[in-house]
Computed example of a mutant assay.
Amino acid sequence: MPDGTAAMLVCAAQLGALLTGWLAVQLGRTDEYGRPAYAPLGLLCVLVFGPPLLLVLGALHTFVMTTPVALAADAAARRGAGPLWLWQCVCVAASGALYAAAIAAAGAPYLSTWAWISASGALPLLGVAWFRRAQQRRGRPYSRGAVWFRVLSAGFLLTGTVVVACCVALATGLVGAYEAPRPAEGAMRGVWTSEDGRAEVRLRGGGGAEFSGVPYEGWDREGRCDGTGTWRYVPRDGAVRGTVDFDVAGEDCRLGAWTVGGTAERPELYALFGDPDAGDVRILVKQASP
Rank of each mutant, 00 (worst) to 15 (best):
A81R: 15
A264Q: 13
A72T: 09
L126A: 15
S120D: 05
P36W: 00
L23N: 09
L98W: 00
G227Q: 06
M1P: 03
R232Y: 07
S120W: 11
D252F: 06
D280F: 10
V248C: 14
V214W: 05
A177G: 15
G173Y: 07
L44T: 15
P181I: 05
G206Q: 06
L86S: 11
V151Q: 00
G213A: 04
G176V: 15
S289D: 15
G256Q: 11
S118T: 15
R282Q: 13
A209E: 03
A122R: 04
T259F: 10
L269I: 10
E210N: 11
A108Q: 04
F156H: 01
G173H: 11
D237C: 05
A101Q: 07
G145Y: 08
S95W: 09
E251Y: 07
P276N: 10
G279S: 03
R79H: 04
A75K: 14
Y216T: 01
C11I: 06
G279V: 07
A94H: 08
P40Y: 04
A154I: 02
T259W: 06
A146L: 12
G190A: 08
T113Y: 11
M65V: 12
A24Q: 11
Y142Q: 04
V25I: 10
A278M: 08
W22M: 12
S112A: 13
L158E: 03
D226K: 02
G250F: 02
A146Y: 03
A13G: 14
R138C: 06
D245K: 14
G213T: 05
L123R: 05
A134K: 05
G250R: 08
D277V: 10
A169V: 10
V191P: 01
R132H: 12
L53H: 00
